[in-house]
């Protein structure tokens, strides 16, 4: 049986208390929400906090509040199942509900939280392996080693952004609140990440993610999430497209497309977005179809599929334009 390493367990009852415990213990500590990412990583010995701070007792981190028109706020400890089943979210943010519903499995979604999903560790099939396995490659840069086996001449780690909600939340312009020893802050989700497989978040040490803030729903924008994976359950995205289009009538006035599962952060498909802004985009219209297909082609270049996930990297890269086009079509009225 694969077992957890030994640790001391803390169970604060509020976010403030949790932050204090984390501050007391420094880098040896780590928060745990649903544990569906942290515990497997601990069993594989890629993360080995000796102080585990469980957030399950923090009632102030759970629940969905606010209104669609003003903006809905979701507590970090809200499970993916509750998010998926929440009637307000279903009505106001179907793309997010869809993205959550294609994460992992129903059992894992009963445990996993939105906060944990936002802070999901980057993945790589040289890294998501047992201690013994990694010993046979003399470890890698992300944990205990110095080479990146995906690109041995590269000075950086290319572990993959693998959360399903992140590309979408970046695209729609959602925000998060964090509290830490230095106080509270609220930032765009997109700013929570940076392009590095190891230091993939900008979250400061000891900072706790408390809430996710969704943008107001005013009928001017539509969003979509499209996921590529081998099986219709369990699997992480090997490509996850978040798309968001704002319209004035039939004309697209703003666009944001993020490519997940194909780089260390949700990569913006800037060129694609540029090509759509100012265009008339109507579902079923041949010209619009063509414009979307052409714009989606531009998603090929920024997609950085490497040989560290499921499926051939070359195919994943070729699939980016296809999936981007599909996500964009979903957004047409």
């Amino acid at each position: 049986m694969l077992r957890l390493p030994r640790f001391t367990y803390h169970r604060p009852t509020s976010a403030a208390e949790a932050v204090k415990i984390a501050a007391d213990h420094g880098p040896a500590s780590q928060y745990v929400a649903g544990g569906t990412d942290l515990y497997p990583n601990m069993k594989r010995r890629v993360q080995t906090p000796t102080e585990v701070i469980a957030l399950s007792g923090c009632a102030d981190l759970v629940g969905v509040s606010g209104s669609a028109a003003e903006g809905i706020t979701v507590g970090a400890m809200t499970t993916l199942t509750s998010l998926e089943k929440d009637p307000a979210l279903q009505a106001a943010h179907p793309a997010l509900v869809h993205a959550a519903s294609v994460i992992s499995t129903p059992l894992l979604r009963n445990m996993g939280t939105i906060g944990g999903n936002l802070l999901l560790d980057t993945r790589c099939n040289y890294y998501d392996q047992s201690h013994e396995w990694r010993e046979s490659i003399s470890f890698c840069m992300k944990c205990s080693g110095d080479t990146c086996w995906v690109a041995p001449s590269s000075p950086r780690c290319w572990a993959v952004q693998s959360s399903d909600t992140v590309p979408l939340l970046c695209a729609v312009g959602a925000e998060v609140s964090l509290i830490g020893p230095e106080g509270e802050r609220r930032i765009p989700v997109a700013d929570l990440y940076q392009d590095d497989g190891i230091a993939f978040t900008t979250k400061k040490p000891g900072e706790l993610l408390t809430h996710l803030h969704l943008p107001a729903v005013d009928g001017t924008w539509r969003a979509s999430y499209r996921k590529l994976r081998r099986r219709d359950t369990f699997d992480f995205p090997v490509l996850g497209i978040g798309a968001w289009l704002r319209f004035d009538g039939d004309v697209c006035t703003a666009a944001e497309i993020r490519i997940g599962g194909a780089g260390s952060y949700a990569i913006p498909a800037t060129k694609t977005a540029e090509l759509l802004i100012g265009e008339k985009l109507v579902a079923g219209d041949a010209a619009a179809e063509e414009r979307i297909t052409a714009a989606a082609q531009e998603a090929f270049k920024p997609t950085r599929a490497m040989d560290n996930t499921d499926h051939f990297a070359s195919w994943r890269k070729k699939m980016a334009p296809v999936f981007v086009a599909r996500a964009l079509r979903d957004c047409l009225g």
Binding site: Y9, G35, P40, S56, P106, L107, L108, N110, M111
Partner: peptide, 12 residues
């Protein structure tokens, strides 16, 4: 609620 007991601490 069905959960995976391999990823739940007994303490939880």
């Amino acid at each position: 609620t069905p959960v995976l007991s391999c990823l739940v601490l007994a303490l939880e």
